[in-house]
Each structure stands twice: as structure tokens, then as C-alpha cells.
Computed example of a mutant assay.
Amino acid sequence: MSALLEVAGVSVAFDGFKAINNLSFEIEEAELRAIIGPNGAGKTTFMDIVTGKTRPDKGRVTWGPSNISLLRKSEAQIARLGIGRKFQRPTVFEDQSVFDNLVMALKKPRGPMSAILYRRDEADTDRIHALAEEIGLTKELARRSGELSHGQKQWLEIGMLLAQDPQLLLVDEPAAGMTVGERQHTTRLLRDVAKTRAVIVVEHDMEFVRALDCRVTVLHEGSVLAEGTLDHVTQDQRVIDVYLGRSGER
């Protein structure tokens, strides 16, 4: 079975600095994967390449069973293929209700006339309520999004991504700034989402990664340093030397 996403031999340099160095990476359908590594390891650049924000100097990035090259696609085209990205800071329409945020995110034609002529139907309403239940915001649907807690805004943004029906979600440091209860809810949410689609989580918090209970990829200097369970990679002396020993996290 071919991978959902394959990154093969990818390198990119900025002003002579190799941010990504012969990186190869695969993720399957309905897989949850955590990516960890020190600052400057290439985690953000990896996501930039997958989503079309950065073009590599060499290598290939292919998508789906048809092995579509993402390197010839724009950011918008890549999103339409089924790749969604959530940045560390949540970006929601704070003056709009939770319900309206989800409505605006639904997978619909995006032309000017389509937006003008759009009328919400029963299927759209049912989809919004299903999404709200999935992300745990059913009781907040009528609430203005700016009034939500930090964790709730993160869940809303995940819901807005899910409204696009992506096959792969890239999620950047979702646990940052959350309460213990919010972190537990986020763990359950991401694990549930990964039952039907692929999810890549970039994270520094080792306890959160442990709770995800998934395969872990360690990046260092733009390459894969180690891969496996969290226990496996945290016992790797190379990982201890370049990341865990430096941060004091074990």
C-alpha cells in the first residue's frame, strides 16, 4: 500500500543554511504521528514544504495513491487536495459565533457568486452540529468566538479544518498554553480524528506526546534522527545528546 504522503530526498537551504537536508518521511492513511526535535530542526520548514509555502531545492513530495506531485501545486491547490494546517496560534473570526465560524469553513465552492448565492440548508446545519459535537463545542455554538478560552479556540480551529474534510491535518504545538483539562480533551480529539484521517502533530511537550501514544519522528538538522515509539526514541543516545539532554526533558 502506498503512503498517503511521501517526502523523499528533500533539501532546502536559506542563505546557505540547510533547513532541510535530504529528508525522507512517510505517513499512511488514518495514522497519528508526532514530530519532535530541537529548535531549528526543520519542523516548521517541513510543514511549509508540504503545504506549498516553501519550494525545496531538490527531492519530491507526492500525495495520495496517484502520487500527485505537490511541488507543482499552489497552497490553495494543496489545501483543496485534502491537506489542512493549523498554526500554533488559533486564527478564528472572533466577532462571529462558533456556529458561523464553522459555516464559513464548510467545503463549498469559493467563487464570489457562490458566496453571494449561498443559502444554508439542512445538510449544512446537520454537519455543523456534528462538527461541534466532535470538537466538544456543542454548548458554545451561539457564543461569540472571541469569548472562548484559548483551548476552545484551538478546538474550533480544528473543527474549521475538519469542515474542509481533509485527509491530512498538520497541527503545530496544540498543547501550548492549555490547562490540564484542555490538554486531555485535545489528546482525545486528535486521537479520534486520526481514526479516519492522517494527523501530524508537531510538539515540544513530551507528556502530551506520550498521551498521544503514537509513532514519533525526531528531526535534527533537517533530517530524521530517530523514529519509533516515544520510549524507543527517548532512549536513543543521539536523541538524548541533541534534544533531551539539552532541554532537560526525559
Results as ranks from 00 to 15, higher is better:
Ser2Lys: 11
Leu4Glu: 06
Leu5Gly: 11
Val7Phe: 02
Phe17Glu: 05
Ala19Leu: 08
Asn21Gln: 13
Ser24Phe: 04
Ser24Tyr: 00
Glu26Pro: 01
Ile27Ser: 11
Glu28Asp: 14
Ala34Thr: 04
Ile35Gln: 12
Gly40His: 00
Gly40Cys: 00
Lys43His: 02
Ile49Cys: 05
Pro56Ala: 04
Asp57Val: 02
Lys58Ile: 01
Pro65Leu: 05
Ser69Gly: 12
Gln77Arg: 14
Leu81His: 06
Gly82Asn: 06
Gly84Pro: 03
Phe93Val: 06
Asp100Val: 01
Ile116Thr: 07
Tyr118Ser: 09
Glu122Gly: 08
Ala123Asn: 12
Ile135Ala: 10
Gly136Thr: 06
Gly136Asp: 03
Thr138Ile: 10
Gly146Cys: 01
Leu148Met: 07
Trp155Tyr: 11
Leu161Trp: 02
Gln164His: 04
Leu169Asp: 04
Ala175Leu: 06
Thr179Met: 08
Gly181Cys: 02
Leu189Glu: 06
Asp192Trp: 00
Lys195Tyr: 04
Phe208Ala: 12
Asp213His: 13
Cys214Thr: 14
Glu221Arg: 14
Gly222Thr: 08
Val224Ser: 06
Glu227Ile: 04
Glu227Phe: 03
Glu227Trp: 03
Val233Asn: 09
Thr234Arg: 14
Gln237Pro: 14
Ile240Val: 14
Asp241Ala: 14
Val242Trp: 04
Tyr243Gly: 04
Arg250Asn: 14
